[in-house]
């Protein structure tokens, strides 16, 4: 496997874990716009333990998950008092506070960042991503997952039917925090350097976007969204120059053509977001979609199945 492919697979695995970290609270009806904050916690926990005490990676990764999960769980109580727009703002503010706190802590390197002596190859993030994916699929099939989905659709009725919505949401938020911590830890170990400016608000926005575009109804959504938006820039990197050359050819330009601006990728992501929200606001993969697919695969009347779902 070439170095380029390994690099992409590492980033893809980290992004998939991060997508599930945002997916779990979102599946229970809570939008987290502070994903980068939790990721930063995990990354710095790993980097600090590794740089200061030489802790091996099999210990730092669980430690990072513990830090992310604990902070997520403890803060979930006051955070989840807020709803809707308030929760979006509160999580956003939380990420900014975490980033600001790390920036001002000299033990964590401040603005200079922290280099990580430890290193893991691409196989560890890939195995971790596979485990996380299986875990979330399993979780969504359990009673817990069912209540999460019910709380997402209507929290009042779910509460009336005897489910403890609050506890479910706190656990979902804490699990999300732990997964974000895991992705941060893997980032720190795979790139051997952490810098707080990497974990900025833009990252939180991107992760939330690709989870919502993939769909929050089923566990297929995040993996699809994360894969699509991680690979899209790579594909565009090779396709866009050709498109530009083609357009230049039409307008009669010849000779060397400068490669197109990097910013075009973000414009395409933005356009896709706007279009998706108009045509498929529930995300690409929905429950109905899965039911139809199953019906079609079984060879039964797909239309009949789809109507039921």
């Amino acid at each position: 496997m070439s170095g380029y492919m390994t690099g992409i697979l590492t980033v893809l695995s980290i992004n998939i874990i991060m997508a599930y970290a945002i997916f779990l609270p979102a599946a229970a009806g809570q939008l987290n716009l502070g994903g980068a904050g939790f990721q930063a916690l995990g990354a710095y926990a790993t980097a600090f333990l590794s740089a200061k005490y030489g802790t091996p990676s099999w210990a730092t990764i669980p430690a990072a998950m513990l830090v992310g999960g604990l902070v997520g769980g403890v803060l979930a109580f006051p955070l989840l008092r807020t709803k809707g727009v308030y929760l979006v703002l509160a999580t956003f503010a939380l990420a900014e506070v975490i980033a600001g706190a790390i920036l001002n802590t000299t033990a964590l390197g401040g603005a200079m960042g922290l280099s990580v002596p430890d290193y893991v190859g691409a196989n560890v993030p890939m195995i971790a991503a596979a485990c996380v994916t299986l875990f979330v699929f399993y979780l969504m099939a359990t009673r817990f997952g069912l209540v999460m989905r019910a709380a997402h659709d209507d929290d009042v009725v779910t509460d009336l039917l005897g489910a403890n919505v609050r506890a479910i949401r706190v656990v979902a938020f804490a699990l999300g925090g732990a997964l974000a911590g895991l992705s941060g830890a893997l980032y720190a170990l795979a790139f051997s350097f952490v810098d707080i400016s990497t974990f900025n608000a833009t990252i939180s926005i991107y992760v939330l976007l690709y989870v919502l575009l993939g769909g929050t109804q089923t566990a297929f959504g995040p993996i699809l969204g994360a894969t699509f938006f991680t690979l899209l820039p790579e594909v565009l990197r090779s396709v866009l120059p050709q498109v530009k050359a083609f357009l230049a050819g039409i307008f009669g330009q010849t000779g060397a053509i400068a490669p197109p601006d990097e910013s075009w990728r973000f414009i395409i992501l933005g356009l896709l977001t706007v279009l998706m929200m108009i045509f498929r606001p529930e995300g690409l993969v929905t429950r109905t979609f899965i039911e139809r697919l199953k019906g079609a695969l079984r060879g039964q009347g797909a239309r009949r199945k789809g109507a039921v779902a």
Binding site: I205, L209, F266, G270, V274, M277
Partner: peptide, 10 residues
């Protein structure tokens, strides 16, 4: 909200 994030990028 998500749609407006898309416009922010564009």
């Amino acid at each position: 909200l998500v749609s407006s994030l898309g416009f922010l990028l564009i």
